[in-house]
Nucleic acid binder design. Structure first.
Length: 153
DNA sequence: GCCAACGTTGGC
DNA sequence: GCCAACGTTGGC
């Protein structure tokens, strides 16, 4: 499958991810069950990822990545000093699950405004009104359109 | 900083 | 199990 994953560039931009060891980062901090379930139940190693910058001056697709691990418990839920600490999470019954994401390359920034201009992308989950999901599936047609037309160098 | 959308919480 | 209040997300 293919995915769009939102990251706040102040926390982890595509450049931050590329600079990490093995260009790989654990996708910490997801605290939404639907997004968690995508990582836990639907992702496979090698799945393509559109790395999306959100909550910033220029929201949009900023890079390409891929799912790089099986799912495992998000360690920040057990870390009292983390802002993602969840007192309800138990070590033997973790509540939050993540995958590692391997950044492949930075792309030109394809802004949300530009995405909205393309009829072929009109049904993209991330463009839906009121969408707040930080991880959304991308259909094969959307993936093909974006990677071959919009991100062609 | 505004505000629409929507998930979560908690009283009943 | 309903639902109002509250909190968060995230584009603008």
């Amino acid at each position: 499958m293919h995915w769009l994953m939102k990251s706040e560039p102040d926390e982890c931009s595509i450049d931050d991810a590329l600079a990490a060891p093995n260009a790989t980062v654990p996708w910490t901090g997801v605290r939404n069950y639907q997004a968690r379930n995508f990582m836990r139940d639907a992702m496979s190693i090698g799945d393509g990822v559109l790395f999306y910058h959100s909550s910033c001056a220029e929201p949009g697709i900023a890079g390409l990545a891929e799912v790089a691990s099986a799912s495992y418990p998000d360690p920040t839920q057990f870390d009292r000093k983390s802002k993602y600490f969840d007192p309800a999470a138990k070590t033997d019954a973790p509540r939050w699950i993540l995958v590692d994401v391997h950044a492949l390359r930075r792309t030109r920034l394809v802004s949300i405004a530009e995405l909205r201009e393309h009829k072929a992308l009109a049904d993209m989950a991330v463009l839906r009104r009121g969408n707040r999901l930080s991880i959304t599936p991308v259909t094969p047609a959307e993936w093909r359109y974006i990677t071959t037309r919009l991100l062609k160098d």
